[in-house]
Structures are given as C-alpha cells and as structure tokens.
Design a binder for these strands. Sequence first.
DNA 1: CGGATCGAC
DNA 2: CTATGTCGATCCG
Length: 869
Amino acid sequence: MDNTKKHDAVLSDEGFQFKMELNDNKAGMEGLDKEKINKIIMEATKGSRFYENELKKDQQVNHRIEKMMQQKAQITSQQLKKAQIQVDKLVMELEESRDLSRVIVHIDMDAFYASVEMRDNLELRDKPMAVGSMSMLSTSNYLARRFGVRAAMPGFIAKKLCPNLVIVPLNFDKYRAVSKDVREILVEYDLNFLPLSLDEAYIDLTEHLKERLNWSKGKRTYFLRRDSTTENSKKEDHMKEVVESSLHVHSISPVLFEDNTLPADEENGSMHELNFAKQQVPSLAEHAIVFGTSAEETVKEIRFRIEQKTTLTASAGIAPNMMLAKVCSDKNKPNGQFRIPPNRQDVMDFIKDLPIRKVPGIGRVTEKMLKALGITTCTELYQQRALVTLLFSETSWHNFLNISLGLGSTHIEKDGERKSMSTERTFSEISVASEHYTLCQELCRDLAQDLLKEGLKGKTVTLKLKNVNFEVKTRAYTVLSAVSTEEEIFAVAKELLRAEIEIASPQPLRLRLMGVRVSSFLNEEEKKHHQKSILNFLQAGKVASTLSSLPPEKLEPRLCNILPLTSHGESFFNKKRAEMQQNREPLREDTLSQQKMPSLKTLETTGQETNGKRDAEKSTESQILTCPVCFRKQETSSLETFNKHIDKCLMGACGDPNMEIQYKKDELLMLKKSDINNASTPLDDKKKNLEILQINKVNKLVEDCEGHSSSSNAETVTSIAVECKQSKEKGSKGSDRPSATASNMCCLQNVSAKEVETQQPCTSGTLEDTVLICPVCNLEQKTTSLALFNRHVDVCLNKGIIQKLTEESTGPAGCDTAANTPSSGSLGRGQQDINTTTRTKRPGLMPQQPSSKKAKAISSRNTIDKFFK
DNA sequence: CGGATCGAC
DNA sequence: CTATGTCGATCCG
C-alpha cells in the first residue's frame, strides 16, 4: 500500500524545514520520522469505513488515469505535431501579453488558529497542540507537526501520533477578531485587498509603492512595543503610531531596518530574530524602525506591524502575479517572505523546478494524472504542452500552459457573483426517516437564512447525502421559479430525500451527512427583466388565461425571451396551467381552503414586525391583480409582493401565513438591495418613508448577522458576512439533535406525523390527506398538496434514469479489487486549516473580464447609502 | 441539467 | 469507548 505518497504530499505542503524556535522543551524533542508516522496512521486507519472508501476513490482515479493512458496511446505523431504548432502559437501570444508591472503580495498567517491559541494561553506555548476536536483538527502548531499532526487529521489519530498533544476547541470569534486586526493593516496598503480566508489575503502593492517613494521617513517608521500580548487592542493603534512616528522620529535615533537586513533570502530569518529578541528584552522596546521604500521593505513593514499588533507572525510572497505570489508565500514559511523579481528570467528560474502540486488549483488528482504522463515539475509540464492539449479539457490545459509559463492573474479582483450556496452537516449515524426529514428541514432553514443575507434566489436545489460508508450522492431538481425560503427549498429537498428513502427501502438510509444547496441564481438583470415583463404583461390588461392559451410564438416577443420554456417549447405558464387542469378536482379544494386565509389579515395579527409595512400598504393605493397561476385576485401594493405570490403559486405553496411573512421580509431585503429610486418600482414619498423604517430594521437584522459593519472597506464587510456562515456550529456532532421518535410508519406518514407533531404547517397546500396515484410509479401517494404530488411525479420521472445510472456506476466499480492496484492507497487530501472562509478564488490563470455586474452592485449600494442620508 | 469530482482551507 | 469537515466551482455525460 503506497500510503507514503499521501504523506509526502501532505508533509511537503508547507515544507518540513521549519525553524524551531523553542528547543528547551521536554515534550517536543523527539518527534517522529516519516516511516513511524505512516505506520501509526495506517494502524489507526486500516479497516475503517473511511479507509475503505478512500481506497475506492483511489481506484476510480486510477481508472481515470488508465482511460487517459489509452487515449494517449492512440495519439498519432501527426496529431501531436499539429497540436504542438497550435500550442506554440498560443505560447507566443501569452508571452506577448505577459505583464510584470504589478506587485502582488500574498500574506499568510502562520499556523493561524494554533498561534492564536498559543498566544492567549501560556500553558500551550511549549506543548504540541492542535485546534479542533477529537474527530477533526483544523490546524496544529509547529511542535505538533513534528509528530505528523496536521490540519485535517482526526484528533484521535493525532493523539496516537502524539499522546501529549493538547487539543483546543475552535474559537472562531477570536480568530475573526484577530483577522480583523490584520485586515485593518492590510487595507492601508491596498484599499481593494482581497481576503481569501481569515488567515490569508492578497494585496496589490503597485500603487502604494509609487506613492511610497515620496514618503518621508516618518511615515515609514514604526516602534517596537512590548505590551502587544494583550489581545484586544481595539483602539486605533496605527493612527497613533503614525502621528507618533512623525513627531518623534527625529528625536529618537531610529534603527534603520536596511542596516539589519541580510542579503536576499536569508533576511527572513534575521527579521524574525530581531523582532523576537527585542520583544523579549525590555530595554530595546523603545526603538523605532524605519522601513525602506522597496516592495520587500514594505512587506516587512506589513509583517512587522502585524506581529506588533497581534503578536502573531505572517509569511508573505511577492511576485508579479497572484499565482506566483501564493507559491512564494509558502517558500519561507513560517515568518518569512520571498520575492520573485519582476523580470522574465527570474520568473522562469523560479518556475523551473517547481513541483506542480505547489501551484494553487493543482490538487491531489491532477497531480497524479500528470505524474502518469511523467510530469512533476513546471518545466516538464511545459515540455509536454502538446500532449496535455490532447488529453485535457481546454480550460484545463490553458491553465496548465499558464502555469508552466509562470503566468497568473495580475489584478486581484474580487470574485464575481457566487454561483451557488450550500450548507451541510456531519452527524453520528441517522437512519430513521423522520429524523432525516427534520434534519433536512433544519438545513433548509439555515440555507434560507444565508440566502436571505445575500438576497439570493436560485432555481435548482441539490440534496447531498453521505452514508456511513462515506459514499456521497447528490440529487438535484430544478424548479421553474427561483426559490429562497426555508419552505420553498424544503418543499423540493424533501421530495428528493423522499425519493432516496423510497429507493432504498425497505433498507433505511444510514446517513452520516446531509447537505442542501441552491444554485442557478437569477442575476440582477434577470430579476429586473422578469419583473418588468410581468408588469407590462399585466398592465396591458391581458388576462392570463387567454394569454397562456396562445402558442408561445404569439406571445409578446420580449416575454418569450424571458419566461422559461419547458423542454417541449411550451411556455411555462402553459405547462403549469395544463398541470392544473389535469388535476382540477384537488385544485378547487385547494383554492377553497386557501380562501379562508386572507393574507393581509394574517399579517395584521403576526406581530410588530409587519405593522409598519401594513400601514404602508394602507397608505398607498393597493392594486388588484390577477395571478396567472392560481387565477385569484391579489390585492397588492408592490410588484415584488405580487411576483412573490406568483412564485409561491408555482411552488404550490399558496396560503401559508409563515411564508407571507417571509415574503415581506424578502421584499424588504430586496428593497434594501436594489435601487429604490429605480423607475420600475415606483413608490410615493409617504410610502418610502415607511419603507425606510422597515429597511432600517432589516438592515439591523442583516448587520446583526454580519456582526460588525463599521469597516471602511466594503470588501471587508462582505468577507465578514461570509465568515459569519462558518461560525454557525460547524463540525458539531449530532448529539444535540432531537431524540429518535420510534416509528414504524411508512415514510410519507412520517413526514406528516412530524409536521403535525412539531406544529409546523404543511409546507404547501392544505389538502387533507388526499390519495392520488402517481402515473409513473403507479403507487398511491398520500399527499397533503397538489404541488407535492406533482413534485413526486417529477421525481419519479427522474428516478428511472437515476436508478439506471447508479446501477451502472456501482456495478463495475465494486468489482474492482484493491489487489489489482497495490500502489493505490493514496489517501492524500490536500486539506489544511479547515473551517475557514471559502472564497474560492484561484489565482486566476484565465484573464479576468471586467465585471460590470460588480460595478452595478456597488453603484446600487451607493444609491441606497445616499438615500439614507 | 444532474451528478460526480476537484480543490481550497 | 467512539471517532475522518465544509464549501464552491467545474467537468463530463
């Protein structure tokens, strides 16, 4: 079993040549060598379900490689020649567009969480320690790494490697606070700096360096402080620092930093020693340091300030693009920095022997595949460029080519809009269907909250399941109209889950993880267009029923473009209408019972939250519009509300009072987000004022969620908002979930029972236990709403295909034995500090397009801000 | 589009 | 005593 491979990969991640600061400790001296580490890990891991699954995954990778090699064997020299010419043409172009003018810096805090914990607890400083839990570690200190204790390793295995290991639980609030301190420094050097996670960021120093050339010494002078061990330095330290330095720089003889530097690569170590020494020696504490004007000096200054402010060290990489900067920051870790000078030769020299695995974006699998082609380093990647062209997708080999030329993106733009949002949870085995549903609903609730924060709605809902054997399955369903609330998402997710439970039955699903994801977001334009068209459509006085009976071509052209069409080319109104006609009977009942719930009245009685809004509605002339889906008249004050109603109808969830409230909230959030002055949503002044009250409330709500929002930098705020997500009890084991309710009922009954039991209104509709027969599976479906039944049918239709697929894929894979591929046991998962914010931005190797969407988002925010003044 | 896979942290 | 995470993007069919 080639398990060493795994650890090679992991161990080489940060390089193993770290400097040991503390050698006076008893516990840390021995450490373990690689072989011993692997042996212990192997013993702990062998035979576990986890391990078995890793083996299986590995075989699949091997299978992929095999396929690739077969493909390779069929390539003729002709093809290769042709490819060579093509690539080289591209190489020329890329080479011409090479931009070495930017100074990009990647800053990376050393062993971040562990360092924070060590800083705040003296006890820990000379002990091997890690942050996380018995089941998963987020990161470890350098002492623990000697024993092979790494990020993403389960604590119980770490304990076997290092019995003295101290495991400290995660403390996100603390890390966030420290991160904020660091970011406050970074933003001074680049207003648009890009935080990647709590402990990592890119800054573009180009502009700063230009200005810096004219800076007086005073502005580049900083003082060593001794007392910076106190963690909560909330005061504006820097402003004081700067003022102080400008005032006193002449009266104190500054330590010129340049004097203390050693040539090139060596200086990093000395820098650390300097700071370290002076902090320990009080008599030197008053000294000032003047930093130079070069990129290196500036980055030293940044690192110095970070260390002074947080007592934590950071490493940095300086290079002409993001890809290189990131690789560089790893080079002299911990507490070091490395720079690639901005000329082609230096870049190429750096790239020359660089293992491709070090490059961000090249993970375990890609590494292995390329290795099969004899490619380990960037030079080899370049040499094989023609071959690679023929074996990988275009985006992949473009990426490879850029890497092998040392190219990367030269401006650190924020990511474009996100494409999906999800939440998932691991827990101890759950195999009771009713619990599956409750859990699923919880996830939907969490996700809905997150979506609300960003005002997103998406059309496809994906359910993710991982069983106790670590096998992962995802099931997705795309609805016609975007969803965002707990109820809407759950309505879909529930059906997906139901389908899985039914397929598995009579065996129960034995799950260890469940997740829910929403994707296919509408972008701003889409939302607006959609809205506008609906407005025109309704104002034109066309009655929905006459319109929807027309063939799509005869619809207003604009409408045709915007409304989604079904695969049969039908207008989606048509489809929905057909569905309804097909089920006329239940529909009437549905409609009838809904009429018992006038939405406005419900709102009146539902707490203060909506009062202001209700007044607003009273004060404006409410319009009466007819819903094209349910054909009922809707009294509504804004188009938004009306659209929500339509969405709801399409989701089959009319008449749920909880949802009405949710929609109100949504609407407010939308108002907050979008330009209120926009002509497409006319509001009279009176109403505006009332809206403001509401919006302020929502703002507050959003702020509460985001924690703090006082940062001058919009990016900081958004990144904090994202991080907020991660703080919500992650990694918490399912111990606190509701205890299992004994149930021998069938799945469907379980759901309804659960809903009754928990006083949760049925997500949709009010049919009383109607039994319908599914035209696909021919099974009786006891259902509470028509929409649910429809969804069941849809899921059933999918199921046939899904089943086929799963049979195909599990069959042959299961036949393969481990014995065939003895060299396969690589368990490597390039994991590091977990539980950090994910802002997956690869140091984009593809040229970035200027994002007009981003600009719009910002401009709309500005408008809102103005509005509040 | 749906599902699996990859990579980041 | 047990015990291996969470998220987003992309690729492939």
